[in-house]
Write a protein that binds this DNA or RNA. Structure first.
Length: 464
RNA sequence: GGCGCGGUACCCAAGUGGCUAAGGGAGAGGUCUGCAAAACCUCGAUUCGUCGGUUCGAGUCCGACCCGCGCCUCCA
């Protein structure tokens, strides 16, 4: 049984897909006006974990992630550079795709662009007008909260109490009620314009997601994800628009990822604690270490990014890598008869059950590390056969289908020059010329190659 | 004001009523090794923000309080 915490109910619920063995998934994608920051990637990596786990559990997953390529920020960005909107967003869209590949995030099945689905949005807005859920005022179209009594069921916000303390929006558009939200913004100079029967203009942000999600997944689908800050108003508004238009429940399971903070504070450019993936790559951070770090805290818990915490994650991941190397390169005796490896089977079961419990990644990783410790212990006592070792390896590579944090199978190559140095050092060691051996080792370390002398011979690994 | 999250060892972090409070990192001692690294063994919270309460029994439930944080504006 797989369970998830559903923001809608506020409880952990058993996941019951609409269609057995299939899951439809919509995740809020990037607004392509800048390079995404690592907080954005925390959300995308959480969604990747969710998706990989569903795939691992033999679900067929249909995943849609939108690309918001028309909104205030993209328009402002393009205009400030005097660049066509398309050209401007293209740059950041490409950067996004590059980043998710770097972070080993599985691609979605569909990446609908808002600008390519204006028709779908217009159709919905028209329908909402016809049904009386929306009204036109001063050339813009608004959704009327008063017509949708269920408003607030996701965020638990009582619309009658949306008041005191909260800053009241001073919008340049005229609406009947300050909390009504815009579906269609009337044309303004310098902004892209689409002609419609309710006037020229461009779509509001919320309608983009409603139109694109239901276009690909149908009016009712299984899972919708996003950051915790999207609960209100974005997702609340999506529910209102979609359920008003289709007359049925929109999303069955809402999963929200908590924020990433840096040094205990919300990231912001002015505080100087704002990082994009590119910033970290420039500091020689291994993106897979970042992936492991972002992955290794439960998605509903606030995660504090610090370079120290990232180092801890790196060391933790290195332990897995070292273990695999050890197991793959040890010469082990063949078992006299076929045997099954109980440690591996138990670990895999624990791993799976932990993730099935609202993606309890900590418990899942504990299962992995217990397997490593248990196997290492037997290895040290020479109680491990080749067959058993292979079963452990197989179990770990299976877990990595979900985690995606292990190095690529293919061995990295060293330059001939470095290989020669390693041989020279081996020769020096044979001749007991340890001073020379140590100096060569030190020299290679400077170049980022660490040598370890094992019983099976010298081993090297690249360090950063 | 409303809605919500968190406070478990030096750091990160599981655990939501019941054997000795997971796991990782860092640290200490030992084994192995020319040394180093890796690995293994051992050590490490009588205690879970504070104070009360419920219970045979609470980190886990209830109440109050303290501290930190988020959202309530088209921020993942």
């Amino acid at each position: 049984m797989i369970s998830f915490y559903n923001t809608l109910s506020g409880e952990v619920e058993e996941f019951k897909p609409r269609l057995a063995g299939q899951a439809s998934l919509y995740t809020c994608g990037p607004t392509v006006y800048d390079y995404p920051h690592i907080g954005n990637y925390r959300a995308y990596i959480f969604e990747d974990l969710l998706k990989r786990f569903l795939l691992f559990s033999d679900f067929k997953v249909t995943h849609v992630m939108n690309i918001t390529d028309v909104d205030d920020k993209t328009i402002r960005g393009a205009n400030s550079l005097g660049m066509p909107l398309y050209e401007y967003t293209k740059k950041y869209t490409e950067a996004f795709f590059e980043d998710i590949k770097t972070l080993r995030i599985l691609p979605a099945d569909y990446y609908p662009r808002a600008t390519e689905h204006i028709d779908d949005m217009v159709r919905m807005i028209k329908g909402l007008l016809d049904k009386g859920y929306a009204y036109i005022k001063d050339g813009s179209v608004y959704f009327s909260l008063a017509k949708f009594p269920d408003y607030g069921k996701l965020s638990k916000i009582n619309k009658d109490e949306l008041k005191a303390g909260a800053r009241v929006e001073t919008d340049e558009y005229e609406k009947e009620s300050v909390y009504d939200f815009v579906l269609w913004k009337k044309a303004k100079p310098g902004e892209p314009v689409w002609e419609t029967e309710f006037g020229p203009g461009r779509p509001g942000w919320h309608i983009e997601c409603s139109a694109m999600s239901t276009r690909y997944l149908g009016p009712n689908f299984d899972i919708h994800c996003g950051g915790i800050d999207n609960i209100f108003p974005h997702h609340e508004n999506e529910i209102a628009q979609s359920e008003a238009f289709y007359g049925q429940k929109f999303v069955n399971y809402w999963l929200h990822c908590h924020h990433l903070v840096v040094d205990g504070e919300k990231m912001s450019k002015s505080k100087g604690n704002f990082y994009t993936l590119r910033d970290l790559l420039a500091r020689n951070i291994d993106p897979v270490d970042l992936r492991f770090f972002l992955l290794s805290t439960h998605y509903r818990k606030m995660l504090n990014f610090t370079f120290d915490n990232l180092e801890q994650a790196k060391a933790s991941r290195q332990r897995i890598i070292d273990f695999l190397y050890e197991l793959e390169h040890q010469s082990l005796a063949e078992a006299s008869q076929p045997e099954s490896e109980p440690l591996a089977a138990a670990a895999l079961t624990n791993f799976k059950e932990s993730l099935a419990d609202d993606l309890n990644i900590s418990a899942a990783l504990a299962a992995l590390f217990e397997l490593i410790r248990g196997t290492n212990s037997r290895l040290a006592k020479s109680q491990l056969s080749r067959q058993a070792a292979n079963q452990v390896l197989a179990a770990i590579y299976q877990m990595d289908q979900v985690l995606a944090v292990l190095p690529e199978k293919k061995e990295e190559e060293l330059t001939a020059e470095i290989m020669k140095k390693i041989e020279q050092r081996e020769q020096a060691r044979l001749e007991k010329n340890f001073a020379l051996a140590d100096s060569i080792r030190q020299e290679l370390l400077q170049q980022g190659i660490m040598l370890e002398d094992t019983k099976e011979g010298v081993r090297w690994k690249k360090i950063k």
